[in-house]
């Protein structure tokens, strides 16, 4: 049970972070300006902000009753939503660098520059959310 106690706190904090960034992303999407700090940048996008907002809510709500299959299900759904946002970001990064302004294929450094920071919050949160897979396995 102590594993679950830890997990509840873990996913509670994770959910709150997702929620917070969701709100930030949504409001900068509506009112601007773009927020950027170090390697983190909050994209001005209403839709992904909205999705992260709900994802955060679901993860928090699920974390509170993680030992129960219904709670776990909700946390999983929230995580999937986060994965969709992060996945789209990664996919778009992969698809842009192959051609540059100049021609068909970018020079290697141009290719890599697209993968350099700053990253959107969803990308930072993605690895932390993968812990949920462990609990999914456990439930069968």
């Amino acid at each position: 049970m102590s594993g679950y106690a830890f997990a509840k706190v873990y996913f509670g904090v994770l959910g709150a972070t997702i929620l917070l960034f969701g709100i930030l992303q949504f409001s900068t999407g509506l009112f601007g300006p773009e927020l950027s700090a170090g390697i983190l940048t909050v994209p001005q996008d209403v839709w992904s902000g909205l999705i992260l907002f709900f994802a955060g809510l679901f993860v928090i709500d699920g974390a509170l009753k993680l030992h129960d299959i219904h709670g776990l299900g909700k946390a999983v759904m929230g995580s999937i939503m986060l994965w969709i946002v992060a996945g789209c970001d990664i996919f778009a990064r992969i698809m842009t660098p192959i051609f540059g302004e100049e021609g068909w294929v970018n020079a290697p450094n141009g290719f890599l520059s697209v993968f350099e920071p700053p990253y959107a919050p969803a990308l930072f949160l993605l690895p932390f959310s993968l812990l949920i897979v462990h609990f999914m396995r456990k439930s069968g």
Binding site: S48, I51, F58, M77, M81, F91, A92, M95
Partner: peptide, 21 residues
């Protein structure tokens, strides 16, 4: 409904990135 928004968002973004490429 929020999940649906996420799915459709993913659909649209993938479509854009893939076709754009």
């Amino acid at each position: 409904i929020p999940f649906m928004i996420a799915v459709l968002y993913g659909f649209w973004m993938f479509f854009g990135a893939f076709a754009g490429f």
